[in-house]
Computed example of a mutant assay.
Amino acid sequence: MTVRVVVGGALCHDGRLLAARRSAPPELAGRWELPGGKAEPGETVPEALVRELREELGVETEALERIPGEWPLKPGLVLHVWTARLLSGEPAPLEDHDELRWLGPHELDSVDWLDQDRPFVAEAGRRLAGQGADGAHRGA
């Protein structure tokens, strides 16, 4: 069985992480996620992330690095999350979302994240919190 990758973007800007509230499907509506979507055949996962964030949020981004781990969504579909940097544009909820919020490391628990995003959000939060002057909190 071929496994397709769904890529989520831990989009960080000015020390904050972007959270997107789902508007569909009904079973996910109202919960928060890292925006992204399925990689298309022949597309690398970083290319898919850049394309999906352009389509969903109307911004240009750069995929930086994959956060370790993966989460099986359903048979043949697995979630990978990459950190990403905002290059240009102001994110707007264009598809699948009805609200966006920039959250600092200490605000990440203020929204109801989808279960599969929680471990990646926690790691992204550790990385954001670790971007202090000494950089001592990087790595595992």
Rank of each mutant, 00 (worst) to 15 (best):
G130P: 05
P119T: 15
L34R: 08
L64Y: 00
R101V: 09
R16P: 01
L100G: 08
A48S: 07
L103F: 14
P26D: 09
R4S: 13
G8M: 01
T44C: 11
P93G: 10
L17E: 12
G104S: 12
A10K: 03
A122V: 10
V81M: 14
L49A: 05
P75D: 07
L64M: 03
E60R: 15
S23F: 05
R51D: 08
A24Y: 01
L87E: 12
P26A: 13
G8V: 00
W82M: 04
L73V: 15
L86Q: 02
V78I: 14
R16K: 11
P35K: 11
P91F: 07
P105H: 00
G9Q: 05
A133C: 00
R31F: 08
A84H: 05
G132P: 13
T61D: 02
G104A: 15
M1K: 02
E99C: 08
V111Q: 15
Q116W: 09
L94D: 05
A19V: 07
L28C: 04
G135H: 13
A29R: 11
R54Y: 10
V78D: 01
P93S: 13
E55S: 00
L77N: 11
D109I: 09
D115P: 09
L128G: 04
V121A: 13
P119E: 06
I67N: 02
A136K: 10
P25S: 09
E56M: 04
H80G: 00
L57N: 07
T61Q: 00
V3W: 10
D112W: 11
K74V: 09
R51E: 08
M1A: 14
V111A: 11
L100V: 14
S23Y: 01
E40S: 12
L18H: 12
P119A: 10
W71L: 02
R21N: 06
T61L: 01
L28S: 12
L100Q: 06
